[in-house]
C-alpha cells in the first residue's frame, strides 16, 4: 500500500483500503473493542498531519507503528489506572468465538498474552502479519538483531507453556 499522501482524499482512500487489517492488528493487542477503530483512525489522522514527511514506501510501516504505539499507550494508561497488567491479545469475546478458537488455540493465545510487551508485538507482527525482520524492525523502531532476540525469546516462552500444558 505504498502511496503518496498529498491530501485528505488520499488518506481516506488508504483508510478504506487498509483499515480492516489495522483494526485486526489493534484487536490482537487491545481488548477494548471500542478502542480499535479509534486507534486506527488516529493513525490515519497522524499520517495526514505529517503528510509530506512520510515517504510513500514507509506509509505501511508508519500506520502499523502508529497503531502499535496507540495501543501501547492505551494499555499503559489502563495499567496505571487499574493495576491489572497487560492483557493482550484480547480474549474471545463470545462463546461462539471460543468455540471457533478451540482449546489449543486458546492456550497459545494465553501464552502470548503472558509475554512481555515487546515480545508480544514481535510475535504478532511475525506470525500474523508475516512481516520480515526488517519490516518488524522498521515498524517498531528497533534493530533487526533486537527483533531476532524478542522473537526467539517469545517463541521459547510459548513453547515452554505448550510443553507444560501437554
Amino acid at each position: 500500500m505504498a502511496l503518496e499522501v498529498r491530501g485528505w482524499e488520499d488518506v481516506e482512500q488508504l483508510y478504506r483500503a487498509n483499515r480492516a487489517d489495522l483494526v485486526r492488528l489493534a484487536g490482537l493487542l487491545l481488548d477494548e473493542p471500542g478502542a480499535r477503530e479509534e486507534v486506527v483512525q488516529d493513525a490515519f489522522v497522524a499520517l495526514h498531519l505529517r503528510r509530506g514527511t512520510v515517504a510513500p514506501d514507509k506509509v505501511p510501516a508508519y500506520l502499523r507503528s502508529a497503531v502499535l504505539n496507540a495501543a501501547r499507550s492505551r494499555l499503559r494508561h489502563r495499567r496505571v489506572v487499574s493495576r491489572l497488567g497487560w492483557i493482550v491479545p484480547s480474549p474471545p469475546a463470545t462463546p461462539e468465538d471460543e468455540a471457533l478458537m478451540g482449546d489449543r488455540r486458546a492456550t497459545v493465545l494465553a501464552a502470548v498474552r503472558r509475554l512481555p510487551r515487546r515480545q508480544q508485538e514481535v510475535v504478532v507482527l511475525r506470525y500474523w502479519l508475516d512481516l520480515t525482520e526488517a519490516d518488524i524492525a522498521s515498524t517498531l523502531g528497533i534493530s533487526a538483531g533486537s527483533v531476532k532476540v524478542h522473537a526467539s525469546r517469545g517463541l521459547a516462552a510459548v513453547a515452554r507453556t505448550l510443553g507444560d500444558d501437554q
Partner: peptide
C-alpha cells in the same frame, strides 16, 4: 500453532 491461533483470533475480531 502461533500462526494458526493468531490467524483464528484475528478472523473473529469484528471489523
Amino acid at each position: 500453532d502461533l500462526r494458526d491461533a493468531l490467524g483464528a483470533r484475528a478472523s473473529v475480531i469484528p471489523v
